[in-house]
């Protein structure tokens, strides 16, 4: 038996919106301590990893580990039934064939229920090595979104360079070339802060198209954390207050 109730259901709605363009079918792992999922996009370039702790739920019960195979496209359609102020409850029996999703609005007394059919997914689970990232950049999520969006109109690829003084996003395309450079900024206004933690500088190139997809999660978190290592994929991380973390991994583009 699994049951989890989230008071701020909008968070779950936003999570589904933030992953539905990247992954199609996903195995959701239920454990007594929380909910997690890991899935790659069809081209194996990007990976979504979500971890939600039971502590963030108003009510959480999972007697055993369970795997719930879900079509994210269909889950997104069901989530559209939810009002932004709804509480969301997820329920599944042992050996479940469907996931029951309940939306409740205590103010308007409206309740919506949907039984989403589960599917069997043969997915490859990748073991992600523990990595000490040599550059970690914490940046306002709205600002990072905007930078990626605007640069994409100029080039398909961005080169991210880090050093102890700044992080630089540079592009080169038919239109010309240029860069946005952000220095370390720990100003009193928290939302303006850009925090650089660089032990070794990194220079890598990435497809901006994917970054734009990841940035749909910027409504979940005021800050985006970019974790870089010269020999490793980029991690774009969105912390979800009191609940968990949504991470995206992106393989770099490599020069011939």
């Amino acid at each position: 038996m699994f049951e989890a109730k989230l008071t701020e259901g909008l968070i779950l709605k936003k999570i589904v919106e933030s992953i539905k363009d990247i992954v199609t079918d996903v195995n959701i792992d239920i454990s007594p301590s929380g909910i997690s999922l890991q899935a790659m996009d069809s081209s194996h370039v990007a990976l979504v990893s979500l971890n939600l702790s039971m502590d963030g739920f108003e009510h959480y019960r999972a007697d055993t580990n369970m795997v719930l195979g879900v079509s994210i496209a269909n889950l997104a359609k069901v989530m559209k039934l939810a009002d932004n102020n709804d509480q969301i409850t997820l329920q599944a029996d042992q050996e479940a064939t469907h996931l029951k999703i309940i939306f409740e609005n205590p103010k308007t007394e409206r309740t919506t229920e949907f039984n989403l059919n589960l599917i069997t997914i043969d997915s490859e689970h990748l073991a992600i090595p523990e990595t000490e990232y040599s550059s970690v950049v914490t940046i306002n999520s709205g600002e990072f979104s905007k930078i990626c969006k605007e640069l994409f109109s100029l080039s398909e690829t961005v080169q991210i360079t880090t050093n102890t003084d700044y992080v630089q996003f540079s592009v080169e395309g038919e239109v010309g070339s240029g860069q946005v450079r952000l220095g370390h900024n720990d100003s009193e206004k928290k939302e303006d802060q850009t925090i650089l933690e660089v032990s070794e500088s990194v220079q890598q190139q990435f497809a901006i198209r994917y970054l734009n997809m990841f940035n749909k999660a910027s409504t979940l978190s005021s800050f985006t954390r970019l974790c870089l290592h010269q020999e490793q994929p980029l991690v774009v991380e969105f912390k979800i207050d009191n609940l968990g973390v949504l991470k995206y991994f992106l393989a770099p583009k490599i020069s011939d």
């Binding site: 194996h44 990748l126 770099p252 490599i254 011939d256």
Partner: peptide
Amino acid sequence: KTNQARLDCFFNQG
């Protein structure tokens, strides 16, 4: 010219 790498090159199949 750049080529897009795949995650499989970095992560092991678990």
